[in-house]
């Protein structure tokens, strides 16, 4: 079973939920936790027990380059590039390696063979294990914009490991990187706070999931810190509220320290509810 964890708003507790759910499931089943928040991957900090260092492999894509560094504009390729990676300056074409997504469209269109491809590293995939838990982490190279390609690669790595449960820690937002991260999941758990900001962004995430046809449920985090109405959204988007995690000082301290709080009674109770909900689905 593949469980995506998303939120819309950042900082609502996606990673907190992902690491505790993964730690719990790994007690009795083969579990993979894959960190797809490739711009801010933080889940590894919560598993100091896991073997260090992570094995690491570069993520590279094939990008276009001019055979001779630059070439004359014959209008065959520049107008085709949807990413603005090929610019014509005074009749001379240049390819911007940072913008090329490696689709190969220009290469196929060039009648003169002026374009070839070379690999470019855009991120890293890390992996380690701890008992029945496999940890996979995608990480985007700083300054790069191709997050979705790193997410794809981390998903492939995670899929190649046998699992009963795969937990995906997704990026915030409700657009391309989040869509890519959630794609293929059996269910997406949305972590929301009872605040106006969070509920507004929850609506966007629910619409995204509805459009993708992915089953969804809401986990309320930091319960008691606001009165915003998330229940109406839960009804409208067919997303049951399956657990509530209260805001407590001890959970806030654990969160700040980047430490798991497996023994916390409030959190354990919420994780129990989620596990039994998932169990009933499968």
């Amino acid at each position: 079973m593949i469980i995506a964890i998303a939120s819309g708003k950042g900082g609502t507790g996606k990673t907190t939920l992902a690491v505790h759910l993964a730690a719990r499931l790994a007690k009795f089943s083969d579990t993979t936790l894959v960190d797809l928040d490739v711009e801010a991957p933080d889940s590894d900090a919560y598993f100091p027990e896991a073997q260090r260092p992570y094995t690491s492999a570069a993520v590279s894509i094939r990008i276009a380059e001019a055979v001779d560094g630059e070439f004359a504009d014959t209008s065959a390729c520049a107008s085709l590039c949807r990413f603005g990676a090929i610019v014509s300056i005074k009749g001379i074409l240049r390819i911007n390696a940072g913008l090329c997504k490696g689709c190969g469209r220009c290469l196929r269109a060039c009648p003169k063979g002026s374009i070839r491809e070379r690999p470019m590293v855009i991120g890293q995939i890390g992996e380690t294990r701890w008992e029945r838990l496999t940890l996979v982490r995608g990480s985007l190279a700083i300054g790069d914009i191709r997050a979705t390609a790193v997410i794809d690669e981390a998903k492939k790595r995670a899929a190649s490991r046998p699992f009963d449960f795969q937990i995906r820690d997704c990026p915030p937002g409700a657009t391309c990187p989040t869509v890519r991260a959630a794609h293929g999941a059996d269910i997406c758990l949305l972590v929301a706070e009872p605040t106006d900001f969070s509920v507004h962004d929850l609506a966007g995430a629910l619409r995204m999931l509805q459009g993708m046809g992915i089953a969804r449920a809401i986990v309320l985090n930091k319960a008691g810190t606001g009165q915003a109405d998330y229940q109406s959204l839960a009804m409208r988007y067919d997303a049951p509220v399956i657990a509530e995690i209260p805001w407590t000082e001890s959970l806030a301290k654990a969160g700040a320290a980047g430490r798991r709080a497996d023994g916390d009674a409030d959190l354990a109770q919420a994780i129990d509810s989620i596990v039994s909900y998932l169990g009933a689905l499968s």
Binding site: G11, A40, L140, I145, P172
Partner: peptide, 8 residues
């Protein structure tokens, strides 16, 4: 936005 990617 949060992160370090394209929209940032």
């Amino acid at each position: 936005p949060p992160g370090i990617g394209c929209p940032v």
